[in-house]
């Protein structure tokens, strides 16, 4: 592993203070090994980016770690506690909360109700105490206060009483992030937090992600936009075809030619000039002609 290759970007590196450690996590769909991770650690208090091309298995890996999907094999611990086979709601209660690539806001609840739902240990969530408001009113009030503070921080306070379904795509991403914070997680896992968000809002989202780290939380996020990843992450993990192919500080990882090839393909950064384009077109045409000639010969 890391020791043998001595590379700064070797996969499966151990961390000084890991919050999450996973080993041999494999998930197959029929013949496809969607996730096949030998060893993976997340450093506490850092922003770790998980990148990789479409179909690399990032979201599936997310689902496995948070209990939304069951692996064929594998074990992982969070704060030293085993999380294999633990139900998603228990994973969340232990302090590991995720968001979704396709944002899941609760459309026909208001923004503030979405937020309140995130609070843990609510007395009023028990069937029998629900009827007796005095049992939970104080707690509800303090939860609401916390929710309002978060909404203000995420600039959603003006939308407090609107249905969540009426929010724009970017606002939904913000709401989902804010709602996850209501659980007060140690590790927050963001699945493509920037997808479908307009550039102006992206900047503020970036700021929010950084602020999560600044208040002592650990962040793992999936992202496609390399500039974004370079900008905010402390550590980058690259997945391709289910495996982790490299990890390291952003600049090292992006300089790693193996990563560049595996992840982006060999020609990712060359912009096509007119000459190149003409050449490609000519090649394609020649190919087509050859094929036509072939079929004509056959008939």
């Amino acid at each position: 592993m890391a020791a043998e290759t001595q590379s700064v970007t070797a996969p499966g590196q151990t961390k000084e203070n890991a919050i999450l450690v996973a080993d041999n996590v494999v998930r197959t769909f029929g013949g496809l090994r969607a996730v096949d991770v030998e060893h993976f650690e997340i450093e506490r208090g850092k922003i770790t980016a998980l990148i990789g091309p479409n179909g690399a298995g990032k979201t599936t890996f997310f689902n496995l770690l948070t209990g939304f999907d069951k692996p064929d094999t594998g074990a992982w611990t969070f704060n030293g506690e085993s999380l294999s086979g633990v139900a998603p709601y228990r994973v969340a209660r232990k302090g590991m909360v995720r968001t979704f690539q396709l944002t899941k806001v609760l459309s026909r609840l208001t923004v503030i109700e979405n937020m309140r739902l995130g609070a843990t240990g609510q007395r009023g969530e028990k069937l029998l105490s629900s009827v007796f408001a005095p049992l939970w009113r104080d707690q509800e009030r303090s939860n609401t206060k916390r929710a309002e503070d978060l909404l203000e921080r995420f600039k959603l306070d003006a939308k407090r009483d609107d249905f969540a379904g009426s929010l724009s795509g970017g606002q939904r991403k913000l709401l989902e992030m804010a709602r996850a914070l209501m659980v007060d997680p140690e590790l927050i896992m963001l699945d493509e937090p920037m997808a479908g968000v307009n550039p102006a809002l992206k900047q503020s989202l970036l700021g929010h992600v950084k602020s999560l780290r600044d208040e002592g939380r650990t962040v793992l996020f999936v992202e496609h936009d390399m500039d974004m990843v370079r900008d905010i992450s402390d550590w980058v993990v690259v997945m391709a075809q289910g495996k982790i192919v490299a990890e390291g500080p952003p600049d090292d990882v992006m300089a790693d030619p193996a990563v560049v090839d595996a992840y982006l393909g060999a020609h990712h950064d060359t912009e096509l000039s007119f000459e190149d384009e003409a050449k490609i077109v000519a090649e394609a045409e020649a190919e087509i002609e050859a094929e036509i000639a072939e079929t004509e010969e056959q008939s």
């Binding site: 948070t66 939304f68 998603p88 709601y89 969340a92 909360v97 995720r98 968001t99 979704f100 899941k104 806001v105 609760l106 459309s107 026909r108 609840l109 109700e113 309140r116 739902l117 609510q122 007395r123 009023g124 969530e125 028990k126 069937l127 105490s129 629900s130 009827v131 408001a133 939970w136 509800e140 996850a180």
Partner: peptide, 19 residues
């Protein structure tokens, strides 16, 4: 009550409530 809120949340998206 918060209990009813969880039910309505489940109606909207149970995976979100799980998370």
């Amino acid at each position: 009550s918060p209990w009813g809120r969880v039910l309505k949340g489940i109606r909207e998206d149970e995976d979100a409530v799980r998370s």
